[in-house]
Write a protein that binds this DNA or RNA. Structure first.
Lengths: 346, 346
DNA sequence: CTATATACTTGAAACGTTTAAAAATCTCCC
DNA sequence: GGGAGATTTTTAAACGTTTCAAGTATATAG
């Protein structure tokens, strides 16, 4: 194990000089810098982060907690955050809560004791008491992403979910649909609640009735969406179009439709929030509402580093980013002849 | 900032006792333990990882470097590694090299100075000199995953790539194909080279000629696969089936076929390595060779923690895991009437 | 009652850096 | 040659833990 002392000895200087050449090279004379650098190289010295963090009271680590690493949205977010953080000289400690509040809290605890310099959090659920206190007590800057929290005064960067859902629903309405199903996320998280709200607004704006029977609340996962779709389609009067609140749910829905022998967009039109790399390899190519994922990541990191450096203080605000409608092939006009499915036989 | 001293003072004990109750509770009497725990709670004390690492000479961090976080294979790997590592009490420092050897090396440097306790590496390229020396010089345990290295004596857990490719190619042959294209990964990494080898072997085993003109080497990314597919299909005698060396390439291929107006599996059959959650939402559902991704992750972590604990020493070996053929809809018998595409008109 | 073993507790020395302040060296001018 | 000022280097004190050796109290045996 080679320490700064070994380097100092080999170069014939004090440890302070070594430290200086590493951290602030122009403070040391050309000659010594030369010698020190050479010593560092021959010894293959790397400063020990733990010691440095201890002394500097900062770790150079950013914590990133995502709700589901399997979801391409979060994957892209991770990619963006990692890239930008790295540019800022930070490494990222990735945590995956798998949509489980308990795991999320555990991760939060770990990050707290790792003394990360800041946390980017895509939270999994409503503001539970323990998490809230965890967040408010620890003095490490936190910025929320994708899913917001109210009341803690944290910075957040999220999609304008209401508008996005409005956009999606409206698109369906414009194609002539009047019975539009919604595969909603859990309304306990803002992405769930706001998208539901946007859907309702769009309906109302077009003088369409909001029918609770046409919305199914499910987790943001595929299987539940599958089941919900089946239920929806077995209604006496099934919807002619369905809006899925995120990408995973869209996939569950597509699979269900396919298993039910329903054709998209012929039998039922489909739209969803979250564009993703493969949306256009599906048959039909999926019409989606795209989120500016990379921007979200960038903004989150920026906000966070601003906080860390002290350039940003006071209570945070929520930053809304705009969505974009990507029209492909999964939305068509409703079939006038649409009939309910036969009742389940098994 | 609350330190162990504050806790000690409040509880009226020495810091050593606090440390003991945290790390080895049964060493301290019930009474004191009680008092200390209460103090910890009221002060909301969390030990500082940096200080602990410094003293214990271990950080509780595992480094994980993946080649492409956007690839569902790696996503699943990350998920598995994170889960298991967390069970073992480790947090994971995620790095994404984006298939760029330079970034990979940079990450390796960072991990080295973070003094992670171990590294799981899905390397990006061949054993470059600097990376090799980086790996061999630092005394932190490394296990390779997905892509192996020879010569450094590292533990590695990889797919039996030769066999997997053999399996895929054979499946196509059994369906009656004789002109089988290959979208190969870079042969500079083992996953590229071995899959190519397996393809060749399967051909030879069935007395089919290996035609270099039918294999296109590309990165493991989508766009290059797209371009390669277009080239392949514009050959005077295009293949009637194509084997893509990984999931991303399969997607690029599907997109290309669709853009070329070719139908799968009617016009061309398709198979690929890497099963992924959505392979069966594609139309047609993709026939694939599935990797036991989670097992790979588990095994890698296990191997690593064994090394860390000293339970495993000496030069490592490569562990091969077996693949599984998942038959869906993308492979059919070749069209006897297959004709070359018309030459490019634009 | 003493000696000895046992069970807890604690003082103090690490761990490897950074950094303020002190010391040393250099520069330049009178 | 001396000294003010600027520049460079070094000394030494942190940072917050863990952990060993040493200490104290308590029980057990003789």
């Amino acid at each position: 194990m080679v320490t700064i002392r070994d380097v100092a000895k080999l170069a014939g200087v004090s440890v302070a000089t070594v430290s200086n050449t590493v951290n602030d090279p122009q403070r040391v004379s050309d000659e010594l810098r030369e010698r020190v650098l050479k010593a560092i190289n021959t010894l293959n010295y790397a400063p020990r982060a733990a010691a440095r963090s201890l002394r500097k009271q900062s770790s150079g680590l950013l914590g990133l907690i995502v709700a589901d690493i399997t979801n391409p949205f979060f994957t892209e977010l991770v990619q963006a955050v990692e890239a930008i953080a790295s540019q800022h000289g930070y490494s990222v400690l990735l945590c995956n809560s798998d949509e489980d509040p308990v795991r999320e809290e555990k991760h939060l605890q770990v990050l707290r004791s790792q003394w990360v310099d800041g946390i980017i959090l895509a939270t999994t659920g409503e503001a539970s008491l323990s998490r809230t206190s965890l967040l408010s007590q620890s003095r490490v800057p936190v910025v929320l992403v994708d899913r917001a929290f109210d009341g803690l005064g944290l910075d957040a960067v999220v999609l304008n979910n209401r508008l996005a859902a409005h956009q999606a629903t409206q698109h369906l309405i414009r194609r002539g649909h009047t019975r539009i199903g919604l595969l909603s996320g859990p309304t306990s998280v803002t992405t769930g609640a706001d998208r539901l709200a946007g859907y309702r607004e769009a309906l109302l704006a077009s003088q369409l009735r909001f029918e609770p029977g046409l919305v199914r609340e499910a987790g943001f996962r595929e299987q539940q969406a599958y089941d919900a779709t089946v239920e929806l389609m077995r209604l006496p009067q099934p919807p002619t179009a369905v809006f899925a609140a995120n990408n995973l749910m869209a996939i569950g829905m597509m699979r269900a439709l396919s298993d039910l022998g329903l054709r998209c967009p012929d039998d039922v039109s489909v739209i969803s929030i979250d564009d993703f790399a493969w949306a256009n390899v599906f048959r039909p190519k999926l019409t989606t509402i795209a989120q500016p994922v990379r921007e979200m990541g960038e903004m989150a990191v920026q906000l966070l580093t601003d906080r860390i450096s002290g350039g940003r203080t006071g209570t945070g605000k929520t930053h809304f980013l705009e969505s974009r409608l990507v029209i492909r092939e999964s939305c068509a006009a409703p079939l006038d002849t649409a009939q309910p499915l036969p009742a389940q036989s098994s």
